[in-house]
Design a protein around this nucleic acid. Structure first.
Lengths: 109, 109
DNA sequence: ACCGGTACTTGGTATCACACGGTAATGGAG
DNA sequence: CTCCATTACCGTGTGATACCAAGTACCGGT
């Protein structure tokens, strides 16, 4: 697939919120979850800054959890503000998505 | 509606290509066409740079046309490369759009 | 002569994805 | 015991983009 980076602006943060809405998760695993969801080329260097942002915006709670295989994990969990942000994201997404669907199917105007 | 700017990254250029695919058009009118299409807050300062980019990427042909009411218009017309770019845009859009649709409706994974 | 609508341009800011490199902890192969 | 792959995280810089603000210019009507 071609270069999607511009189209992913704002989208990836929403995806991460959505993944977190299914329960606490940590960066490394979120990357692979995104890869499985079709965003194959999304790398760690993209996801960790997003998690930092979510933390700074107070949309998540953070807990350090020891791992059996490697350094301790930073497990992120959505809080109330985070859930609201996720809903707001889906609203925004629905909005532009629907406008583009209309645009794509109309030749006039 | 909330702030859509991040979600519009990459999208607006595609929209402008799509508008131009319906025949030659000029900046000021494209702005209003976008506004009518639901992107109400998109302003001139956003669209003119896009047109400049399309010109630099050689996706459009430009012609100065006198106007009956105001300064001359820069009328842009899609060329072959532009039409190819539009198709590529829709492909990319379909890709991320479909992935998000799947993600939105699944709670597991 | 002024003003509102038309039409384009420019400069600066903020935000984001991403590449790149670095750090650290564990466990297994040699 | 040492090397190395895997797991896991962090920081910096770059490029692309939307957007804001302000300015320039052309025209017609009052």
């Amino acid at each position: 697939m071609d270069d999607l980076t511009e189209l992913l602006k704002g989208v990836l943060e929403g995806c991460v919120l959505h993944i977190l809405s299914r329960g606490g998760n940590y960066g490394y695993e979120i990357v692979r979850s995104l890869n499985r969801a079709g965003f194959a080329s999304v790398a760690e260097g993209t996801v960790y800054p997003i998690l930092l942002r979510l933390e700074n915006k107070r949309l998540v709670e953070v807990a350090r959890v020891k791992s059996e295989s490697g350094p301790p994990r930073k497990v992120y969990t959505l809080n109330a503000r985070g859930r609201a942000a996720l809903e707001a994201f889906w609203r925004r997404w629905e909005f532009v998505s629907s406008r583009l669907a209309i645009m794509k199917e109309t030749d006039n105007d």
